[in-house]
């Protein structure tokens, strides 16, 4: 999968899991600042990535990602 396509998919998933406006998100969006939510939302996001992209990311690794771009890097490594 191309990087841009992966970024778009993950941005969409973040918007869905965090009830955020997809149009306002980018790879530079920062978790905890631009994207706020509870830990269960991160669990939902990790589950969604696992379901849709077949990439099993540890929650601790996902939680350590500062930006959506960092998360895309993690998923790319896993793929």
């Amino acid at each position: 999968m191309e990087r841009k396509e992966l970024e778009a998919q993950i941005i969409k998933m973040v918007a869905q899991c965090y009830n955020a406006d997809e149009a306002k998100l980018s790879v530079d969006s920062v978790f905890g600042e631009d994207i706020s939510g509870t830990s269960v939302m991160m669990v939902g996001l990790v589950s969604e990535i696992e379901n849709e992209l077949d990439a099993m990311i540890q929650l601790s690794d996902a939680a350590a990602c500062k930006t959506i771009g960092d998360l895309v890097d993690k998923v790319e490594e896993e793929l």
């Binding site: 939902g44 589950s47 379901n51």
Partner: peptide, 10 residues
């Protein structure tokens, strides 16, 4: 449920 068939199986 959060996980689909393949993911829960794994």
């Amino acid at each position: 449920t959060m996980l689909k068939e393949k993911a829960i199986g794994r």
